[in-house]
Design a protein around this nucleic acid. Sequence first.
DNA 1: ATTTATTTGCGTATATGATACACAAATATA
DNA 2: TATATTTGTGTATCATATACGCAAATAAAT
Lengths: 224, 224
Amino acid sequence: MKNKINLTVDAVVFGYESGNISVLLVKRKYEPFKDEWAIPGGFVLENENLEDAVQRELSEETGVKINYLEQLYTFGDLDRDPRGRVVSIAYFGLVKPNTFKLQASTDAEMAEWFDIKKLPKLAFDHKKILKIAIERLKGKITYEPIGFELLGKKFPFSDLEKLYTTLLNREIDRRNFKKKINSLKVLDELDEKVSVGPGRPASLFSFNKKRYFQLKKEGIIFEI
Amino acid sequence: MKNKINLTVDAVVFGYESGNISVLLVKRKYEPFKDEWAIPGGFVLENENLEDAVQRELSEETGVKINYLEQLYTFGDLDRDPRGRVVSIAYFGLVKPNTFKLQASTDAEMAEWFDIKKLPKLAFDHKKILKIAIERLKGKITYEPIGFELLGKKFPFSDLEKLYTTLLNREIDRRNFKKKINSLKVLDELDEKVSVGPGRPASLFSFNKKRYFQLKKEGIIFEI
DNA sequence: ATTTATTTGCGTATATGATACACAAATATA
DNA sequence: TATATTTGTGTATCATATACGCAAATAAAT
C-alpha cells in the first residue's frame, strides 16, 4: 500500500463547575510550539483504534477520565503542522465534576482547565478546532440532554439551569425550563436537600439514564 | 515523525430523479473485493487536501460533478480493510439531476446509480458507511433545506414534495408543507409553467440561494 | 427575636406554531 | 363532452412555547 500519512487524534474536553465551562489544555514540552497551550492529543498507533488512541493520550497527558466521547471532525489542511502533513481526527469529550480536578502529580505534561471565555493562545490550528467544538457543544445541548454529562451524580436544579444559561449565553425562564425538563422525565427527584448560602434549600436530582437512552432511541428532539 | 497510516477518502454521493433516491457506486477492478460494488474513493496523496482528494477520486472514477459536499465521519476500525490498517474519511455529497447521468465513456471503472432501497452487497465496511450517510441525509433534510441541492434549477413544487415523501418515507400534507416552505421564503415562483401528462400545469420554482445562506447564517431551524 | 435579602419552587393565561381537513381550477385522455 | 388527474389554496382546531407573579424556606443582619 501507499501514501501513508501521519495521523493524530486530538480531544477537546469540556468540564463545568460553579457556573464556568472549562476546556482541558496541555502545555507543550517540545517543538513545534514548545511551551504553548494545545488541545491534548497525539499520534495514532498502527494497531490502535481511534477512540483507544484518544483515551490513551488523555490519560497520559492529563489523567482525566472521560465521561462522554464522540467524534468531532477531521482536520486535514496541508499546512496545519509545520513539521509536514498531519491529519488529525478531533474528538469531543465531556467530564463530570468529580473527575474534574487535575492530579497535581501529573506534571510531566502540564495540564490545566481554562474557562472557555478566557482562552490562551493556542498551538497549531487548535483555535479553529476549539471553535468548532464549542459550536457543537452549544448546538448539541439544545437538542440532546447532554448537559447531564457535565453534572455530578446529584445536583440541584439550579445547577442545570446555570449550565444552560452559561452555555447558551442568555437568560432562561426557570419555570418554563423546568416544565420542559419535567416533560422529558429524565430527572429523578431525590429525598435529599442541600443548602448553600441564603435562600430556600434545594432538592437534589439525579439523572435517569434508562429514560435518557429510551428517548435517544426514539429520536426524541429536545429543544430548549 | 512516526506512525504513518494509510489514509483514504470515500464519498457517498446521492442523487434524485423521478421519485427515487440513488447513490453512486463503483465496481471494483482489483482485489480485495474485486468485482464487488463499493463507495467511490481512494488514497489521499501526501500533498493533497482532503476535499481535493474526494473530488479527484470522484472525477476519476465516475465523472460526476458534485454540487454539495460535506464531511461525514472518519472510520478507523482496525479490521476494516483486509490489506491492513486503513483509516477512511467519509464524505457526503449531493448532485443535481443534470449531472446525474453517467458518461458512458468512463467505463474504465464501472460506475452506476443504485436506488437506496435496492442496494447490492458492498465491499469493506461500506454498508455501515452508507447506513450512516442515509441517516445523515434523512436527518439533515428535516432541519436544513438541502433538498434543493438535489433538484434542478427549475422545478415544480410537486418535485420537492415527492423528494421529501420519498426521503422521509411518509406522506406529507401538501398544504402544510407549502406553508412551511413559503414561510422560509427560499422559493421564487417563476413566470413559467410545465405540463406533464394530465392535470393542471404546474408553476416552476427556483431556489433562492441568497435567502438560503441568510437563513443559514441566522441559524434558522427548519423542521418538516 | 425580628427583619431583610436571597434562593427555590410552582400555576395560569396568552400567543404562537403545527396539524387536520375539502374543494375548486386547469389540463390530457377517452 | 365527460372523466380522470394533477395543481393549488384557506380555515378551524389543537398542541406547544412563552410570559409572567407570588409564596415558601432558609442565612445573614439588626
